[in-house]
């Protein structure tokens, strides 16, 4: 059984190298090659991190949802490991998205934090993810933890569109007109020379995400094998 891990380990290494290459390409293109934005200046380059981060975070949440549904339906440990892994990495990318958004906001709006729709939504997403991880670690029995977390994963995902709608309505209905386009998604205004680094960085982030996910997934599988071995030995 340990041999299977070794084989996929090598394949993983190549994949990781590919991710690294695309990250470096994306960094070069985003920081050096691409011109600064006409309106936002150099600070716009943070968007090459921010948009891929948030998309990856949403992807993660979707995987938590899929893993949770499959686990509750079929009760196969692999689906639970998928959900747990996606949640852990999802927390990382969501937290990074908030930090990036905050840093972008300081020179753009003058404040480190504002309750605009995007930042608020991402903060709520982080809270739900964090709740998922806490629920798992605080539930005593392993299988109970898995199915409890799966319920949260499903409900949380179904709630996201409703949270999205309510936060956007709240912010657009009450936003005074003096604040300049705080709710327009940045990708709605993107010009062609800026699209290439964005797509490059997006590809890099996706490759990185799946690389990290496969590592974390393998960790989950190995832990499961350890548990199974320990259980069988006790008999």
């Amino acid at each position: 059984m340990a041999k299977i891990s070794q084989i996929s380990g090598k394949r993983n290494g190549y994949f990781g190298a590919l991710a690294l290459v695309s990250i470096l390409l994306g960094l070069y293109w985003g920081l050096v090659q691409a011109p600064p934005d006409a309106y936002q200046g150099e600070v716009q380059r943070i968007m090459y991190l921010h948009i891929p981060s948030i998309l990856t975070a949403y992807l993660s949440f979707f995987l938590v949802f899929v893993g949770s549904c499959l686990y509750l339906w079929k009760r196969e440990k692999r689906d639970d490991i998928l959900a747990y892994s996606a949640a852990e990495i999802g927390v990382l990318f969501t937290a990074l998205t908030i930090i990036e958004g905050s840093i972008w906001g300081k020179p753009t709006w003058g404040v480190w934090w504002t309750w605009d729709a995007r930042l608020t939504l991402t903060a709520i997403l982080l809270l739900i993810f964090a709740g998922y991880l806490m629920l798992r670690s605080l539930t005593e029995e392993e299988n109970r933890g898995a199915s409890s977390a799966a319920v949260l994963g499903i409900i949380g995902f179904l709630d996201i569109p409703l949270i999205h709608m309510s936060v956007y309505w709240w912010r657009t209905l009450h936003q005074p007109p003096s604040i300049l386009r705080p709710d327009k998604a940045p990708w709605e205004n993107i010009a062609w020379p800026l699209l290439t680094p964005l797509l490059l960085n997006l590809a890099a982030f996706l490759l990185l995400y799946f690389y990290l996910l496969s590592l974390r997934f393998r960790l989950g599988e190995v832990n499961e094998e350890i548990k199974a071995l320990k259980l069988s030995r006790d008999f």
Binding site: E42, R45, I103, W104, K106
Partner: peptide, 8 residues
């Protein structure tokens, strides 16, 4: 700010 974000 750009380097701060990328660095973190």
């Amino acid at each position: 700010f750009v380097f701060l974000a990328y660095g973190i």
